[in-house]
């Protein structure tokens, strides 16, 4: 049908890329600061936070360039991460050294309480990402 290459993200996918980029910057900035400022306070949580940030950066790049395999891996990793770490941060926060930490406080990480400190965007975004990737791969099969 269309002669345009389907490799790059287009249409609403571009919005997804933009929101991912902002979240990647937010997570990366905060995690760099936490590691410089007070890594000793919650090393496990802050390491996870840094890993999450790097994955957000990779996901942004993958979505923007149409590298679908990397996009699937990184977006799925984020969904698992926000669910697992979100649950741990609510049920057994001491496991992460986060006892008594508010999701909006200085010990908050991007995945604490399912990303509550980030308006739950970390929870919603991977779901939207997976829906969009599915739609895209289906469109590619039909084309």
């Amino acid at each position: 049908m269309s002669a345009q290459p389907r490799t790059r993200a287009s249409g609403i996918g571009r919005v997804l890329v933009a929101v991912y980029a902002v979240l990647a910057m937010a997570a990366l900035g905060r995690s760099i600061f936490q590691i410089i400022d007070r890594f000793d306070e919650a090393p496990i949580a802050y390491s996870l936070s840094a890993a999450a940030a790097v994955v957000y950066v990779l996901a942004t790049i993958a979505l923007a360039t149409g590298w679908d395999r990397l996009a699937w891996v990184t977006v799925s990793f984020e969904l698992v991460g926000v669910l697992v770490i979100g649950t741990i941060s609510v049920v057994v926060p001491e496991l992460l050294g986060l006892q008594g930490a508010s999701p909006f406080g200085p010990k908050a990480t991007v995945w604490s309480v399912f990303g509550a400190g980030y308006l739950f965007i970390p929870l919603v975004l991977p779901v939207l990402g997976i829906l969009w990737l599915r739609k895209r791969s289906r469109a590619a099969v039909e084309a």
């Binding site: 249409g11 609403i12 571009r14 919005v15 933009a18 929101v19 902002v22 910057m25 937010a26 900035g29």
Partner: peptide, 28 residues
Amino acid sequence: TAAIIPPLAIVWALIERNRWSNVVLGAA
């Protein structure tokens, strides 16, 4: 970080002139 977001969004909107760029501007 806040200082570079609006210029980036505006460059985006100038390069890609479609409806979704407005949503990107709003998100910024």
